[in-house]
Design a protein around this nucleic acid. Structure first.
Lengths: 227, 227
DNA sequence: TTCATTGTGTATCGTATGTTACACACTTAC
DNA sequence: GTAAGTGTGTAACATACGATACACAATGAA
């Protein structure tokens, strides 16, 4: 147990955060985060913020996962990224300074426990805590890197490779080798059509990389099949 | 002239920055930036930082433009973005905290005047100046948005549309409707092949959207040709 | 039960783009 | 001058993917 010169305001919350962030934040910072944040649990497929809605909180994911997406001028949906345990939404951060309206939609992928941090605290803590500063900048960097690798993926890899990677990442994310998802949903995430996905899924199935039933895909162990 | 309770350490630098950033930074901040930054002018096509090199300065572009790129695991080049006047390199920012080695290559596109800010000042000023904090977070946001629109562009638009947009953006960037560039360079930036670009350039030329000679492309006025 | 909704398999076809190959003009170095 | 390097045009071909259409199974509501 860590020595402290204070009593945590909310013991349950403190311990939950400490378990996740002890390497990132000092106890004092964690305590402050607990004191101002709201801990909530959401069911799967719940829209947390939508495009155009005003943003009052920055979400920090404690468990589960969040899908963050946006729309372009033509109404096309663009998958930005998934937030996993310990992560926060970089795009939301801008709202603490400039924009007040969300440009993104965020929804839970699975049941998720989220800590809601009031936006006005974001900047305050950036002045006060080095650890918080680095957490925020680190988030931005992570997202930038993810975007770069998304572009890399799209332009240098075939749809088939992207599909396999997508399925495996999803399995890792959900910690379950059986995915409950439709071909159409996959197609949307990969910016392609249902027919193309069905065609490739058939092929993956023939190659024993997956097994599938309606709305249900079992991703089989990856042996060294790749080049 | 703005009232001040101090004498700028470097009058020439101060006035140059004030002309560009008077709406962004207070005079006091500008003065401090001048005092610690180094003003340099580089010729075109000069590599400022390369992948793997250690980063000591964050560049702020005063004039000209910088191309920022990276490489993926397979040695493929990925164009990240262009820095224009007033902008800074978000990716470099991470180096002030975590990484010390650059993951990107930055090179001048045209002759450019750059202010080099020592990395250790980045964090210091984030604590001291709200304007600096917002400038930094704003940079990140701008880059994230650009990445998103790059993805959008790639997945929802034909190569032909991307090519036209690329040429027009380049013209706006360089403030010159005649571009000195080879088909191969364009192909690299758009992640395609020289042959495809040549093919499309022929078509654009037939449609009177451009005129070209070896290494030289004149982008003609855009009238309402688009859908 | 019946019906509507949703998810999937499959065929047919068009086309944009990548691949490879070669000719040839321009530029620069020698 | 010649030669090497670089930039461009063009043809022939392969192919991945998108578009469209239709059949049919599974699901769930009435």
């Amino acid at each position: 147990m860590i020595e402290r010169d204070f009593i945590p305001a909310d013991k349950a919350c403190f311990e939950k955060l400490e378990a996740k962030f002890s390497a990132v934040f000092e106890p004092k910072t964690i305590d402050e985060i607990c004191r101002h944040g709201h801990l909530k649990t959401y069911v799967a497929d719940k829209i947390l913020v939508d495009i155009g809605s005003s943003i009052k909180y920055m979400p920090v994911v404690l468990s589960g996962s969040i899908k963050v997406m946006t729309e372009d001028g033509n109404g096309n949906e663009l998958l930005l990224y998934y937030l996993e345990s310990g992560e926060t939404c970089a795009v939301t951060l801008n709202c603490c300074t400039v924009e007040k309206k969300s440009t993104v939609r965020a929804l839970t992928e699975t049941e998720s426990e989220i800590l809601l941090v009031p936006v006005e605290k974001i900047e305050e803590w950036m002045i006060k805590y080095q650890s918080w500063r680095r957490y925020i900048l680190g988030s931005y960097n992570q997202r930038l890197n993810e975007m770069v690798s998304a572009i890399d993926n799209i332009v240098f890899h075939s749809l088939e490779k992207r599909l396999i990677r997508y399925l495996r990442e999803k399995v890792a994310l959900k910690k379950n080798s059986v995915l409950v998802i439709s071909h159409q949903d996959i197609a949307d995430d990969l910016y392609t059509t249902r027919v193309s996905i069905s065609r490739l899924m058939r092929k993956l199935e023939a190659n024993k990389l997956i097994e599938q039933q309606r709305n249900r895909i079992a991703v089989l162990e990856e042996e060294k099949h790749e080049a």
